[in-house]
Design a protein around this nucleic acid. Sequence first.
RNA 1: GGUUGGGUUGUAGAGUGGUCAAAUACAUCAGACUGUAAAUCUGACGCCUCCGGCUUCGAUGGUUCGAAUCCAUCCCCAACCA
Length: 420
Amino acid sequence: MKEVEIKKENLFEHLKERGFVYQTTNEEEVRKLCDNGETTVYVGIDPTADSLHIGHFFSLLMLRKFQQAGHKVIVLLGGATAMIGDPSGRNDMRSMVTDDFIKTNFQNIKKTIGKAVELEGENPAIIVNNADWIRGYDYVDFMRDIGQHFNVNHMLASESCASRLAAGGLTFLEMGYMLIQAYDFVYLNRKYGCQLQIGGSDQWGNIVAGAELGRKLNFLEGKDPEAFQALTCPLLTDANGKKMGKTSKGALWISKEKTSPYEFYQYFINVDDRDVVKLLKLFTNYEISEIESLAKADIRAAKKLMAFEVTKLIHGEEEANKAVSASAALFEGGVDTSSVPTYNLPRKEFEEKVRILEVAQRANLISSMSEGRRLVSQGGLFVNNKKLLDPNEFLSEVDFEEGFALLKKGKKNFVKVVLS
RNA sequence: GGUUGGGUUGUAGAGUGGUCAAAUACAUCAGACUGUAAAUCUGACGCCUCCGGCUUCGAUGGUUCGAAUCCAUCCCCAACCA
């Protein structure tokens, strides 16, 4: 299949036809920024967890396209904003986190940014931390410089406050979040000439606040008020309107340690057929016409391609291939089980006899013995693909004929038990 | 600070002295059908050494043969008032 090349002349159209454009402050202005000259663009991410998840990656992917088209890109890791906690779209307050926690996260995330945007070469992305300019900004000065431009009525009316208000209101701390993020945009504009902020649509309120603040300040200073524009990408949702990237174990993380490439691949191979074209458009650069005709001709091939490409994008080709062959082994009768989650059972315990259910529980395949019994009675638990009939059965030597025992719950959950 | 209404098993939400491990819906899990999809149907859905037992209904104490249900104190939440 042919891939399209990302060129500056049609960047905006490219983003739009692939589904990246959700809202813009002013479509014509944004289009100009995309397609002409050299624009500096930024995305902000708060290091509130020790890894990025697929949603973050999605907005970084958009940033990458700007970079590939020759624009300058900045990734802002919000060391200051993470300490405040964004109230957008939440109905409870974020729990307070410590400085150390944020710092560790910051370092961990910084390492993975390179998966999305280029950090070396001719046009490297710049990584900045808003703690560098916010902490140390005198409170009174900040309130006089920035706070005076915010109307509380407008802030309360915003979508991002709505669910917090509905749930009983929000604290001053959380209200302050918007001011900081708004000021970030102005700061990056002054320092790097940044004119465009992009992000997920849940950030719209904060992003627009920044653009407005910038315009007000520019107007007061007699500068060009059009210098601040914004572009958001849609929230990744599935065909049922639910947020994508949720797994039974939480978010779909970028870091291998938190979500293995195998799990990652499995997530995408299990998506609804209706989402395949959308995901191919977003996560690959294949020609749209080719994507559509492939999906029409063979939806399963299209889905496999999509899952492979997304996994490759995040974990690299080698890991993606491993995930594919591990999946083929489990679902299509191949032999490679190297990427299947493994549980090490001490040989001593095996010799003293362990019930299969107990091992399954310790390997996190089942959450309780009761669940295990239930599964057995319903015929949903397998050892080496043989249905387990007796919940009290012990693990035996024959189960390890292959060198390991493969426990399976339902159709899709596997654990490889190895004696050690 | 005051008044009122609340805190129930993932969520929403019944239950107001025994028939309550607790209705119902959603979510989830498994089975059938399939394609590791969707839709549909069936079953399960606190825990355990599982035809039986144990621990739950904000917390603690009390009344009672018996409490999620009544009383007391405390903690938390919402609405309104100030």
